[in-house]
Design a protein around this nucleic acid. Structure first.
Lengths: 344, 344
DNA sequence: GCAAGAATTTGGAATGATCCAAATCAGACC
DNA sequence: GGTCTGATTTGGATCATTCCAAATTCTTGC
């Protein structure tokens, strides 16, 4: 797996050796230590010296070697980002929010897309330890064991979980408040007189699904109701569209559907339409996440807005704080969603 | 920017020091060099010795330090991935394709989202050099200067461009064959008797836009036609929807529209519908990229399929080859699109 | 039992930065 | 001029690995 001497290819272009800190120091006529202090913006060096070193940097085209620095200092300015399903637009927005914060702070992120599989996740976490990332933002794949994450965290790699949390929620976590989201949706539907409300759910083995279901049940209970149905569905338009028929064939079909996310809701939307049902009048339909597409679908999809970019930003922020202070008290940050009512 | 001693936080959890190769060697009763060879799967070591070292690895919980290895060997097994617009589903698919290849090969990627701005791109490329990535997959931001990329490549950081290419296309590049895509669409439309065919375009300063326009013009010329209109539009549903009215208000409105990408096409789709036009019968509408959403929009969007995951995989493949052999001849790989006709 | 050759194993130097304690420098004051 | 003090600057050790040439061990044939 680790390559030995990857065919060094007897450089025709002779791979122009980089200027090192040592050479830079010689060029500026100061010691290595002084240059190092300048690089790290230390206030210890005299203004004049700093200026001279800066000039030499420009003149020689010096490039800082963060890897070498990391070896001694222990800080790599890099984190891992583990996403379970990057092709879902929601995660793309989340990623953009994270990326913006990291860029501003001068950090970089390793990206991995697990496809919600624990083996890929495990492999990637291992690589993060090998690369000595300073921390990891993790949306744990369904089926991740809390104990395993505990081990990794204990080995000195701070983890902030996003969107989903494993086990007894004690570590750092940032995500939407799914319960409030469900409460908003249920409230809205009950006011309109809906009584048979169903949930198109997802994999029960992750907290994001469980919390949605619990939120729904609690909210319905407050109105003296129970879920009319709970149908699991993979997160894909096609699967959701296909599911529509079997739901509507029932003897007592639901009058309102809340979907685990917008991808499913949009699939359901077109599935229902192909069956000749008109979402919004025949059947109420509410998605989750409020991705861009909701505004332009026909009819426009109502959705519970979870503000992925803000969640990403808050998570990145928290991870950087945790890296700076590994012993601080764990934080659980829940961002309240809003309900965006459109035509369905 | 570079932090000095980020508040080492007087470890309560005492940050369990990692086992080093030296300690591992002692545990296994061999030399550092031998352990190093085992780690790199060298055939030089005796099977028995290898087994012993492997046992010790498991027993001590050793974690390879790729950063330290890189310092000596020069290979980091990490690359940079620079995307211009991650929230576009097309790029998300592309990223997934890249990620799959890298994962299989045991590499990791640094991710950056430039938002199509050259300053962010420049900043990120600088960080890649500091982190000593072995290479970069780059979708150059509009306005990127070819000379700048040349400099960077000459400094020893291999670059494979994806989707867009700057300047005289001489470096490594992987992307769809936009011209063929346009030819397919034009052919299809002309056969149906369309004569007034328009293009909803994008920023002209990148090759992906220029090649689309050129492809369209060439294909139309072969039919003795010229573009009925070329309207620039930002890559957003809302902007595209808003644009619809002004297009249809013309005295001689186009009967067919080809859109720069599906995001724009879907915005246009709903914009047209709100104006009371029926895409597919009143106006032909063809998108570009064939993202998932095309199948489930109502009416289903016809689109030129560019197979992002395959492009990503091919690009990652090429970059790994280029890293292994920096002196090889540059390759330009164009993947032929297919036309997927649906309801519009 | 020994030489030759192949198969393994090894220790010192190197990679490019930071850390740290100690050295040097510059003023201020007597 | 000498001493004290605070501000700068410095060199040697160190971080965890690989490289390389040389040393050691094992086979084989006579």
């Amino acid at each position: 797996m680790i390559q030995i001497r990857p065919s060094q290819a007897a450089g025709r272009r002779p791979a122009p050796r980089r200027v090192t800190l040592r050479e830079l120091a010689a060029h500026a006529g100061v010691s290595r230590s002084t240059v190092s202090l300048v690089l790290r913006e230390s206030p210890l060096v005299a203004a004049l010296t700093r200026a001279r070193v800066r000039e030499s940097m420009a003149a020689t085209g010096y490039v800082y070697d963060r890897g070498a620095a990391r070896l001694r200092s222990g800080v790599s300015q890099a984190i891992g980002l583990v996403i379970s399903e990057i092709t879902n637009p929601f995660y793309a927005e989340l990623t953009a929010g994270i990326d913006a914060v990291l860029d501003r702070a001068g950090w970089v992120a390793f990206l991995a897309n697990t496809g919600d599989r624990t083996d890929r996740q495990e492999r990637f976490l291992q690589r993060m330890r090998e690369q000595k990332a300073d921390g990891v933002l993790l949306c744990p794949a369904s089926g991740t064991e809390a104990a395993r994450l505990g081990e990794i965290a204990a080995s000195g790699l701070p983890i902030v979980q996003i969107l989903r949390r494993t086990g007894p929620m004690q570590g750092d976590y940032v995500g939407p408040d799914y319960r409030i989201g469900m409460a908003l949706a249920v409230e809205h539907l009950c006011v309109r007189g809906h009584v048979r409300i169903g949930l198109i759910a997802s994999d029960r083995r992750n907290s994001a699904s469980r919390e949605r279901l619990e939120g729904l049940t609690e909210s319905l209970t407050r109105h003296g109701l129970t879920p009319a149905l709970v149908a699991p569905c993979e997160s894909s338009r096609a699967k959701a569209a296909a599911l529509a028929a079997s739901l509507m064939d029932r003897t007592d079909p639901p009058t309102a559907l809340i979907c685990h996310n917008d991808v499913i809701a949009l699939g359901m939307l077109s599935g229902l339409q192909r069956l000749g049902r008109r979402p919004g009048s025949d059947v109420a339909l509410i998605g989750f996440d409020n991705i861009n597409e909701c505004c332009t679908s026909i009819p426009a999809l109502s959705s519970i807005a979870t503000q992925p970019a803000e969640i990403g930003a808050a998570a990145a922020d928290l991870l950087l704080r945790r890296i700076a202070d590994p012993t601080g008290a764990p934080e659980q940050i829940l961002l309240p969603p809003r309900l965006v009512i459109r035509e369905t």
